[in-house]
Design a protein around this nucleic acid. Structure first.
Length: 921
RNA sequence: GGGCGGUUAGCUCAGUUGGUUAGAGCGCCUGCCUUACAAGCAGGAGGUCGCAGGUUCGAGUCCUGCACUGCCCACCA
């Protein structure tokens, strides 16, 4: 028998054992079904963590939510595919390996491109699996047989295919533009990879002498060092201050170069001096102005943001040193006329924090507007839904203001751009496979473009490339569009938007297997090109002080450490219970500790159950067997003989309903909390306590009655385990196997059916009656506490109930009352007991504890005073409302009815309370 | 410069579409080692729902303004 469980729940060994079991048994592997499959389909793509990643709380929240939804679907009979993988993460991984090389005193250029890439692969083979191993510890029920890596050969081929197609469609172009350049990473980065940070800075005013006059024109700039590359000064044509200078030239200080004064809207008369220096090679606005006016582009910096030969005497200096020197020289020569405090939005590299340099360079771009058009439509017309809904607007705003996307990176690690340059004729050959010779001149000296693609280029394709694209596969018919995407807000633009653009473009015309589409509930959707039908954006996990976690702040909470201390189930439960849609989570260890206690509670309830089973009927199993688990509703094999049976059965079905509805709308916290309250507050605190006498046949309850009680307990428990399983997969799996005495009908509770409510098992009368009994018991306990009755002392009570039904209810269940309130004898009074000093009353009954000690009259009076005030206030409110004809006319009838009922109760309560208050003097 | 959120018990947070008495966990106070669980049980105290208006029969919930606070986006030097 496995029933001799340890007294305290120890999650560690149990969790690792089941995690391994699930993988070994391939429980979550889903072979692509052939045509004819009729089950509804649920597909979810795991947002691929970086191979270099270490599991953090964000991952854990994300994966917990996904796993809950995935397990829930699987248990409801969906053909459920959760596709895992990792991202090659260009910059991050390259940095990682470069750091490793640095510790050996080497640089990547020492190795050369090929050897370096081989080195990265080696690194990946050694350490790349770490984050997925950590996922396994979380219990993520993914299909490991389909694990992908974004640099896998098949995915790389798909990337080249996409590049070539986009190029052929004119949606990819190459050109020399200003891009965001990270001097430390040595590569271009996209707009999204630049984080703006407001920092205090200076606005400098520099005067340039106007050639042929004694005048100066004063420009304002935050970046004086770029003046070395100035090729014009712009003023606004309408600005009267400068109209006499139109067409004149200025002599650029320090460089002694003559540059024109141009008129352009770039200059805003309201800002600074109204005149602006124009540096086409170092500012995107100036670049545009330069094109408009045919200005030369003078690049004064190199790839490390050091000044180059174009910077004359400043060559070799870093941009920061150059700024100081330039300012110093301007000051000395009398050109610097003002320095004003000014807040600058400084752009920093998302990856390394280095200040980004707008740099003129040749890059590859995707023309985004045509792709964005359909991506906007798909969301606007509801082909893709985004929840919480406010993110829909954020998405649309962003998409409507999107710029072209710079996709080339000057890195070595990544998908190399499939373009070859002919050394002979300079032709560019864009091809899926390495060409043997130049298509123009036939030359064989071809060199592949040295750039690689932005990592998000390949991850944006994953919804279809992981399903075999560009081939047309059965997997796509079944699993595309994927059903849901659960992800963090921060990658809404990086990833989600790009997947939508690519999906809508490349899967245009795709159709999901109509039968499966219908079965899965998407019959009303027209567009099967979308990468997913739904998006759910989850919150950010912050630390207990609501601070964003960051390494520099040192406030990062390591989920693995939390798991170590409290268990995976407790940690998962915490994240679920705190995840109200739309609000960030302040992670709190005390909450996790509370849920560890919850796991322990479940464990001990199981121990109790097993002890009872072993005593009453060893070998008793739940009524459900095998295939039945997929079709039944409510609790099987449950025989409601007593009030508490009818009550708990009804409650269980109510909870099942509630939880299913909550999960359907991503209300994880409501689902988790409802299960918690049910299991602890109702099942353990009341139900188990109530049935204890029936479980002990030696108490005279009878063997058959004990057998029924035991059966109910085990069947209910089994159902509760299934209900809880998506949130706490480990402990439920462990106990579920034990419930079936290690011979479960299925390999895992994860494959059993998720509880659905059974209408026939609802029993509102039982719920009402039970509430009255609970009320009575709590009142007696309360009185006992007030009278300071010894815990063990059994006392007689008197009860008055005006309604015969209530009296008979109490009579019938007096055994329960006696046990749970430690009552010796119940006698029924003929008249109200409300006046008695030591009595308690409700609208339905009065109860008095017969005991020699008297209550504290003063305290009782205070309590009553408060209560009276409350009742009177509520009465007044009710009377006001019920006396209002408009209210009676407009309010829904159930509200009016409810208030009338409440009013009747209050009348009784008020009367009783008043008379007692008088009695106390 | 735009946009979005938050403000409810000592602390951290819930509070579906407005509807009867605003909840939980932790913490606090009192009493219990009652053979499932002291990681537990029983009882209790604690809130003018940020401020000011408005809509409504009815507002924690909807609207406006204000205050404080957080986040995202942004090529005005």
């Amino acid at each position: 028998m496995p029933h001799d469980l340890p007294k305290a729940y120890e999650p560690g060994a149990i969790e690792t054992r089941w995690a391994e079991y699930w993988i070994k048994e391939k429980l979550f592997s889903v072979p692509t079904p052939p045509p004819g499959e009729t089950r509804p389909v649920f597909t979810l793509l795991l947002p691929p963590p970086n191979v270099t990643g270490r599991l953090h709380m964000g991952h854990m929240l994300n994966q917990t939510q996904m796993d809950i939804i995935v397990r829930w679907h699987r248990m409801r009979g969906f053909l459920t595919l959760w596709l895992p993988g990792t991202d090659h993460a260009g910059i991050a991984t390259q940095m990682m390996v470069e750091r490793q090389l640095a510790s050996e005193g080497k640089k990547r250029r020492d190795l050369g491109r090929e050897a370096f890439i081989e080195r990265v692969w080696e690194w990946k083979r050694h350490y790349g699996g770490a984050i997925l191993d950590q996922m396994k510890r979380l219990g993520a029920s993914v299909d490991w047989d389909r694990e992908y890596f974004t640099m896998d050969e098949n995915l790389s081929r798909a990337v080249r295919e996409v590049f070539v197609r986009l190029y052929e469609e004119g949606l990819i172009y190459r050109g020399k533009y200003i891009v965001n350049w990270c001097p430390r990473c040595g590569t271009a980065i996209s707009d999204l990879e630049v984080k703006h940070e407001e920092v205090p800075g200076k606005l400098y005013e520099i005067r340039y002498p106007v050639v042929g006059t004694n005048e100066f024109i004063t420009v304002a700039t935050t970046r004086p060092e770029t003046m070395l590359g100035d090729t014009a000064v712009a003023v606004n044509a309408k600005d009267e201050r400068y109209q006499h200078l139109h067409g004149k030239k200025v002599l650029l200080p320090l460089m002694n170069r003559e540059i024109p004064i141009i008129t352009d809207d770039l200059a805003n008369p309201e800002f600074g001096t109204g005149a602006v220096k124009v540096t086409p090679a170092h500012d995107p606005n100036d670049f545009e102005a330069g094109l408009r006016h045919n200005l030369p582009q003078i690049d004064v910096m190199d790839e490390h943001a050091h000044m180059n030969e174009n910077a004359g005497p400043y060559a070799g200096l870093s941009r920061h040193a150059a700024r100081e020197r330039v300012l110093e020289d301007l000051r000395k020569q009398g050109f610097l006329v003002a320095e004003k405090d000014y807040t600058i939005a400084l752009g920093k590299c998302d990856r390394c924090g280095t200040v980004v340099e707008p740099r003129l360079s040749t890059q590859w771009f995707i023309k985004i507007a045509p792709l964005a058009k359909r991506a906007i439509e798909a969301v606007e017309n509801g082909e893709i839904t985004i929840a919480p809904e406010n993110y829909k607007q954020i998405y649309l705003n962003w998409m409507n203001n999107i710029h072209d996307w710079c996709i080339s990176r000057q890195l070595w690690w990544g998908h190399r751009i499939p373009v070859w340059h002919c050394a002979g004729c300079q032709a560019m050959i864009v091809a899926r496979e390495t060409p043997a010779q130049c298509t123009k001149c036939g030359g064989t000296k071809l060199e592949q473009d040295t750039d690689v693609l932005d990592t998000w280029f390949s991850s944006g394709l994953l919804p279809f490339t992981t399903l075999g694209w560009p081939e047309k596969t059965r997997a796509q018919e079944v699993f595309y569009p994927t059903t849901l995407l659960i992800t963090a807000y921060e990658i809404l633009f990086f990833w989600v938007a790009r997947m939508i653009m690519f999906g809508c473009h490349f899967m245009q015309g795709h159709q999901q297997d109509p039968q499966l589409k219908q079965a899965s509930g998407w019959g009303d959707k027209k567009d099967d090109s979308v990468p997913f039908r739904q998006v759910y954006i989850h919150a950010l996990v912050r630390d207990a002080e609501r601070q964003k976690m960051s390494k520099t702040k040192g406030n990062v909470i390591d989920p693995l450490e939390i798991i170590q201390r409290f268990g995976t189930d407790a940690t998962r439960f915490t994240l679920a219970a705190m995840a109200a849609p739309g609000t960030d989570i302040a992670f709190s260890e005390s909450r996790t500790d509370g849920y560890r206690a919850f796991a322990n509670k479940i464990w001990n309830a199981a121990r109790f159950m097993f002890m009872s089973v072993d005593r009453v009927e060893a070998g008793l199993r739940p009524a459900l067997a095998g295939s039945e688990t997929q079709s039944h509703t409510g609790v099987a094999g449950f025989q409601p003989v007593a009030l508490e049976d009818r009550w708990i059965l009804s409650r269980f079905n109510g909870v099942a309903n509630y939880v299913n509805e909550a999960l359907a709308t991503y209300r994880f916290h409501e689902a988790a909390n409802r299960i918690y309250d049910f299991f602890w507050g109702e099942f353990c605190d009341w139900y188990i306590e109530l049935i204890k006498p029936r479980l002990a046949p030696e108490n005279g309850a009878g063997k058959e009655s004990a057998r029924i009680a035991c059966g109910n307990l085990i069947n209910l428990f089994e159902a509760a385990l299934r209900l809880l399983h998506p949130v706490m997969p480990f402990i439920t799996e462990e106990i579920w196997h034990a419930v079936y005495d290690e011979h479960p009908p299925l390999k895992s509770v994860a494959l059993a059916a998720y509880p659905q409510a059974n209408e026939k098992q609802f029993d509102l009368a039982a719920e009402t009656e039970m509430a009255i009994l609970q009320d009575l018991i709590v009142n007696v306990r309360n009185l006992r506490a007030e009278l300071k009755v010894e815990q063990k002392q059994r006392v007689p009570i008197q009860v008055f109930a005006a309604e015969p039904a209530i009296r008979s209810l109490i009579e019938k269940n007096q055994g329960s009352v006696k046990r749970l309130a430690n009552v010796e004898e119940i006698t029924f009074a003929a008249n109200t007991l409300a006046k008695l000093a030591g009595a308690r009353h409700t609208a339905r009954f009065d109860v008095h504890v017969v005991y020699e000690r008297k209550i504290d009259v003063g305290a009782e009076r205070e309590r009553l005073k408060k209560e009276l005030a409350r009742i009177e206030k509520e009465m007044a409110n009710l009377q006001r409302q019920l006396g209002n004809e408009q209210f009676l006319a407009k309010a829904p009838s159930h509200v009016v009815e409810g208030m009338r009922k409440r009013q009747q109760e209050l009348v009784v309560l008020l009367q009783k309370t008043q008379s007692k208050f008088k009695e106390l003097g």
